[in-house]
Each structure stands twice: as structure tokens, then as C-alpha cells.
Design a protein around this nucleic acid. Structure first.
Length: 517
RNA sequence: GCGCCCGUAGCUCAAUGGAUAGAGCAUCUGGCUUCGGACCAGAGGGUUGUGGGUUCAAGUCCUGCCGGGCGCGCCA
């Protein structure tokens, strides 16, 4: 493809610097654009514009498919492609779209996300990790990765949280009390059980319900449900892990507790792994769990956690270093979703307290709107959830614009069915500016996806899908596909690609691409 | 006090260190005899919290302030 040819030519002409070459979606800035001259100028001891002219001179006439090269702005090199090269690139893109890209080819990744505490149902904060994790998994997979989606079923008879939950279940405590939980407790027979067993039973029930909700309502499916109690406690993995840590000389005793020397591996301070009363904290099982993940042969282990787990990052990285694990450990923190208090909120949250459940959100607005709403924001953004705004956003949500474009294309395709092709080709339709605009947007797809797979900023996809739908609108306005007794062959081909790209973009985000609306 | 994150248009948010900081909503103007008007064309709206620094180039990187969220337990 011409982009690769240009890159090769640029490498020869500008060997220094980590310059880029990317599709430009504004034709005024060429079809492809590079900052190679800006980065080479210093090494060459000349001005950026002069460097650009030099590179231009070396490439001009040597790469097939380039119509002309312009030097613009401070020294950008803008490449204009011939219509032939553009059409060829599109055909190449169409093939890749069906078989996927390969920037993450063969890489094995594990993504753990949601992993909610077994003390209640999922709230709007969990939505971030849920939709982000799922979309990230889809993106890595599409770029050639082998991805395991994993849910850590946080449940153990040794956990003080379970005991506390048991107290709530038996009416001896209120820490996790909500109307929903009370109803659940009433439906269960907990007679004769102690706090731990009652808590455990209740936790199992809650996990079961959450799982149902995740699979059926959020349409997220996990490859692995890692049950803490079975995998770590019942099988004595924790004990073996502790023994291994002791043997490596990574622990010491102080105040009757066993501490791990995490501070020697980048953490702020050492952490307790066995309490002075002999019970295990949450940290040891966590270490055991991560060692388990590391040992499964992944190139990359990703944890998607909520903002309140920010303290985990350093200590888990410390654990990785202690065990000398070669793969990457990425811990992503999603920032909080805060609630804007007001009358509107109480209306939507028919339930008690300041919690809005994800279930309510999905029921009220529909999964597509909700996934887009979360999907367009960076994980680092502090979201403020305002019920009135959410309502407004759901009605005016850009997701409908994108879905509408998809449905409209489907309708045109249906209309063309049975009619003869008028014989025009992709090459012919390239004469139309809005067709070139749409083509550039299509060719941008690969860049956007690979960038997302590289920096994990999955929210790029929503902006991209909107831009693509908008480019389609321009094309639709200018080029008629179905005419008197035949259809425009070139335009039709472009429509098929656009439909596929829209559908793929939405699909990766877990959003439906309807044929009709 | 220490650590992480944030501060961009009236609102919700974008912007691999790049060109004139962009979308949607809201406001205003214009457009339906033609493939789906859930649309299209256009306008107004910005000292990117603030002061320095690095760079050919800073919303982006470093740093000092200001403001906000979260985390700093032998809870998870």
C-alpha cells in the first residue's frame, strides 16, 4: 500500500527522529501528512522548511501513487495521492476490516475488570470498568491479541467483609443494609448458620445475581470466573504463597504480624500479609492471585480498578518485581463517578440512599445509550452524574446519529438490490470531494484502532465513529447511489465499506448496529 | 502532610508534543417534489485555572501557586 511505500521513502530521506506519518482527514492538509522535516531540521542544522524541501526533492517522482507533495505550515510534508492509489488503499482496507489488524498479533493478554465486592449490586461507578474493560478486550482482540476476560469472584470465608455481611444477614449489623439486600435476605433460609456461613451464602447469592446482570443485561461475557474461595483458600494456595515469600526472605515479623518488604520494590511502605491474630488480610490472596495470573503465560496482565483501589497500583507492581515477572502489568484506575444531588436524582433512583444502580440506568436509557455515554469519556475523567442531564443526553445521544447512518446505508443497499450496476468504479467516485473525505475517514480506522490498542484509550472509538458517520452524511448529500434503473457501482462499494466500518466500531464498543430504526 | 487524578466554549466531553484547540447539547440563521429530515448548510461563543521553564512547536512535558475529587488501616 502507498502509505508503506511513503514510509519507506521517508526512512531513507529522514533517518533521524521518531516522526509520524498519518492519514489526514482534512484534504487541505493532504491525504497523508508527516512531521519528518520538523524533526530532522535540527540534526541537519537547517530550518524546518528547508528540510521539508530537501525531503520533498528526494521523494518526489520516486513513489508510485503520489500525485504531489506540498510543504505546509511550519514544515509539514503533505502527500496527495492519486485516485488510483486511494482506491487501492480502500480495497486493501476492506480486506483488513474483515480479518483484523495485527499490531498486537499473537500477544496473550488477561484483562480483569469489574470484580465487584459481593456486598451488593453494581452501581454507576462499576459501569466505567465494565464497559471499558470489555471494549478494551475487543480492541486488543481485533488487533490480533489473544485475550482472556476475567472476573475475580471476591468471596472467602476468611474475609472480614463476609463476616460483616453475615452480621447484616442475621440482623446483627447494618453495614451493607439496603432495601434490596433485605428482600434478598428474607427470601433465604439462614437459620442455624453462624455469621461466616450466613455471610458466605448471601455473598454467593449476590455474586450469582450480579453475574446474571452482567451477562444478560450488560451483554458482557467473561472467559474466566476466578473464585477466590476455591482457587486460593480451599486449595491452600495462600499458604504456599506465604511460604514462598518467606523463603525468598521478603517477609519479617513485627508487632506479631507478618510484613512484606514491598518498600524495597517501589512501594511507599511495607504491607501486612498476616495479621497478628493469625488471619490473612486481603493482600496475600491478591498476591497469590496475581502470581497465578503471571504463571498462565500472558504477555500482559491488565487490572481495571476503581479509584478507591489506587493504593493497589504500587504494591502490585512491587509484587511483580519481587517475582521477577517478565510480562507487563498494567493497572488502570477509573476515576470516580460522582453524583450531583438534586430532586431529579431521587426520581430516578427509586431506591434508598445516594446510590444509583447500573441496572436502573440501563433500564431507563437502554444499553446502547449507556455504553456510549461511558465509552466516550477517558477513564481519567471525573464524571459527574446528573440525572436530568443523563435524560437529556440519552435523547440527544450521538449514538443515534451513528446508528442512524448505519441504518440508512442498510436501507440504500436494500434498495439497490436487484438493480444492475451502472459500471462505475471506486476510481470514478473518487472524483467527488466528499467521497474522498469519506475514504480518508475510512482509511483512518486502522490508525485509530492501533492507537487505542497501543495507549489503551478506547474512547477514541466513539469520536471516530461520529466522524465517520458525519463523513458519510456529506457523501450521501452529494452522491446519489440508487438512480433510474441502476445503482452507482463505485458509490455502492464505498457504502459497503462504510457500513462495515460503522458496524465494527459500534461492535467493539458493545453497541448494536441496527439495520432499521 | 504524602500519593494518584482532574481543571478546556453556557453544559457534557474530545484533542499519538504539531498546522486555525474540536464535537454534541443549548442559542441564532437558512434548507424537505429526489436513495430514511433521528438529517444538511451556516453563525456566535475560548487568554485551555494561574505564574515560570524546556522545545523549531505546549491544552499536552517539567516546576511554583490556586481550586476540586479520591487514596493513604493488622478494611477490601
Amino acid at each position: 500500500m502507498v502509505k508503506n511505500d511513503i514510509r519507506e521513502a521517508l526512512k531513507k530521506a529522514a533517518p533521524e527522529g521518531a516522526w509520524g506519518l498519518s492519514i489526514s482527514t482534512d484534504e487541505k492538509k493532504g491525504h497523508l501528512s508527516s512531521n519528518a522535516a520538523l524533526l530532522s531540521a535540527k540534526a541537519w542544522g537547517i530550518g524546518p522548511k528547508e528540510a521539508a524541501e530537501k525531503i520533498k526533492g528526494e521523494i518526489e517522482g520516486k513513489v508510485e501513487g503520489i500525485e504531489r507533495i506540498e510543504v505546509a505550515g511550519p514544515g509539514f510534508l503533505n502527500f496527495y495521492l492519486t485516485h488510483e492509489a486511494m482506491a487501492e488503499a480502500l480495497h486493501d482496507f476492506e480486506k483488513k476490516l474483515t480479518k483484523g489488524f495485527d499490531s498486537r498479533k499473537g500477544e496473550k493478554a488477561n484483562i480483569e475488570f469489574i470484580s465487584a465486592n459481593p456486598t451488593g449490586e453494581l452501581h454507576i461507578g462499576h459501569g466505567r470498568g465494565a464497559f471499558y474493560g470489555d471494549a478494551l478486550a475487543n480492541v486488543l482482540e481485533f488487533c490480533g491479541g489473544k485475550v482472556t476476560r476475567e472476573y475475580y469472584v471476591n468471596i472467602s470465608r476468611k474475609s472480614s467483609q463476609i463476616k460483616e455481611l453475615g452480621k447484616t444477614a442475621l440482623g446483627k449489623g447494618e453495614q451493607y443494609k439496603t432495601p434490596e439486600l433485605e428482600a434478598l435476605i428474607k427470601s433465604m433460609d439462614l437459620s442455624g448458620l453462624d455469621e461466616i456461613e450466613a455471610g458466605y451464602l448471601l455473598a454467593e447469592k449476590i455474586q450469582e445475581r450480579n453475574r446474571e446482570f452482567i451477562e444478560e443485561k450488560l451483554k458482557i461475557s467473561f472467559d474466566e470466573w476466578f473464585v477466590e474461595e476455591e482457587k486460593l483458600h480451599a486449595s491452600l494456595v495462600n499458604e504456599r504463597t506465604l511460604a514462598a515469600l518467606k523463603m525468598k526472605g521478603l517477609t519479617y515479623e513485627k508487632d506479631g504480624a507478618v510484613w512484606l518488604k514491598t518498600s524495597e520494590y517501589g512501594d511507599d511502605e511495607d504491607r501486612v500479609v498476616v495479621r497478628s491474630d493469625g488471619t490473612l488480610g486481603y493482600f496475600l490472596p491478591d498476591i497469590a492471585y496475581h502470581i497465578d495470573k503471571f504463571s498462565r503465560g500472558y504477555d500482559m496482565v491488565i487490572d481495571v480498578l476503581g479509584a478507591d483501589h489506587q493504593g493497589h497500583v504500587r504494591r502490585m507492581q512491587a509484587v511483580r518485581k519481587m517475582f521477577g515477572w517478565k510480562g507487563e502489568l498494567k493497572v488502570f484506575i477509573s476515576q470516580l463517578v460522582t453524583l450531583k444531588h438534586g430532586e431529579d436524582l431521587t426520581k430516578m433512583s427509586k431506591r434508598a440512599g445516594n446510590v444509583v444502580y447500573l441496572r436502573d440506568l440501563v433500564e431507563e436509557f437502554g444499553l446502547d445509550v449507556v455504553r456510549w455515554f461511558y465509552g466516550e469519556k477517558s477513564l481519567n475523567t471525573h464524571m459527574e452524574f446528573d440525572a436530568r442531564l443523563a435524560k437529556e443526553h440519552s435523547e440527544k445521544n450521538p449514538v443515534f446519529y451513528v446508528q442512524y447512518a448505519h441504518a440508512r446505508i442498510a436501507s440504500i443497499i436494500a434498495k439497490a438490490k436487484g438493480l444492475p450496476n451502472d459500471g462505475t468504479t471506486l476510481l470514478d467516485v473518487m472524483r467527488e470531494p466528499s467521497a474522498r473525505q469519506l475514504s480518508l475517514e475510512l482509511l483512518k480506522f486502522e490508525e485509530v484502532l492501533e492507537a487505542a490498542a497501543d495507549d489503551f484509550h478506547v474512547h477514541r472509538l466513539t469520536s471516530y465513529a461520529s466522524a465517520l458517520a458525519s463523513a458519510f452524511s456529506g457523501f450521501y448529500r452529494d452522491v446519489r447511489i440508487v438512480g433510474d434503473g441502476s445503482y452507482n457501482g463505485g458509490g455502492y462499494a464505498l457504502l459497503l465499506m462504510t457500513k462495515a466500518a460503522l458496524s465494527k466500531s459500534l461492535g467493539l464498543l458493545g453497541i448494536s448496529a441496527p439495520e432499521k430504526m
